[in-house]
Design a protein around this nucleic acid. Structure first.
Length: 269
DNA sequence: ATGACTGGAGTTTCCAGA
């Protein structure tokens, strides 16, 4: 069976609700991870998506952050935040940044799917910056506590890190910019070393100019001056099931768009 | 005009985003 999944930082579900509906229906998406819903848990438009046939798993706070998963499969288990870590490691906004569900079906056996929103961390070297680095390290610890590399895991979301030089439009200009500093890229690599593969690079190993975010300013989208910050990370057991993966760039060109485009991936189970 | 950011909070202007 074919499974179409995706991730999208929508920059407010209130502003982008119709965009999400359009994407779900036009592409017949099975599971969509959302970030920056920017609404409190109970104010998410659950009913709208339930009418379209999706289960809704969301946690959010007032005004910022917020992660959701819209799924045609019912969750057998849910993780929200850094499950299993000590009390002092429960960062104040971690529940608004990490949500995961376990699904199973006749063909799919115990697949965990996460929606992730890593802190932005700007400006570089600020308290926020070091919070971001800590968050990335702690996230690796969270994975080790709950899973192993032998699990079937799909971690998707806005990681706020452009991993390689080809993931920014001009690596010299962006060298010391937030999302592309050495320390952020190193922390991202350490995360991958858990046993994760950057799914887009399985299909487009050396292609430059593939971005998922473009600044609202400076006509950045028209000039394709962006960064690849949104990722679908998978464990080894899913690698040979990946059929296709792409950035749905068209959505960045819709009226009143999010500054991120969705990343979609098709698996065959 | 030859350039121009957006969303949310909460009150007219600031903060955060990347």
């Amino acid at each position: 069976m074919s499974l179409l999944i995706g991730t999208w930082n929508v920059n407010s579900i209130k502003m982008r609700r119709e965009h999400v509906e359009k994407l779900l229906q036009e592409k017949s998406i099975d599971i969509l991870a959302l970030q920056e819903t920017k609404v409190e848990t109970e104010k998410f438009p659950n009913l709208i998506f339930k009418k379209l046939g999706y289960e809704v798993y969301h946690y959010g706070g007032k005004g910022r952050n917020g992660v959701a998963i819209l799924s045609k499969f019912k969750a057998e288990d849910i993780i929200n935040g850094f499950k299993g870590l000590k009390e002092e490691d429960q960062f104040p906004d971690v529940k608004e940044r990490i949500i995961g569900i376990k699904i199973s079906s006749e063909k799919i056996k115990e697949l965990w799917i996460f929606s992730i929103y890593i802190p932005n961390g700007s400006p570089v070297n600020s308290d926020y910056y070091f919070y971001k680095l800590q968050f990335l390290w702690k996230f690796r610890e969270f994975l080790e506590t709950n899973f192993s590399r032998n699990f079937s895991l799909i971690l998707m979301g806005d990681f706020n890190v452009a991993p390689e030089e080809i993931d920014v439009y001009d690596s010299e200009i962006w060298r010391e910019n937030i999302c592309f500093t050495e320390r952020e890229r190193k922390a991202f690599k350490i995360l991958l070393d858990f046993g994760l593969v950057d799914a887009l690079r399985l299909k487009y190993s050396n292609k430059s100019g593939i971005f998922t975010w473009w600044d609202y300013q400076f006509s950045a989208f028209n000039k394709n001056q962006g960064m690849r910050l949104d990722h679908i990370l998978i464990t080894e057991s899913l690698v040979n099931k990946l059929q296709n993966i792409w950035v749905e760039k068209s959505a960045r060109g819709w009226k009143k768009p999010s500054d991120h485009a969705p990343v979609l991936a098709e698996f065959n189970f």
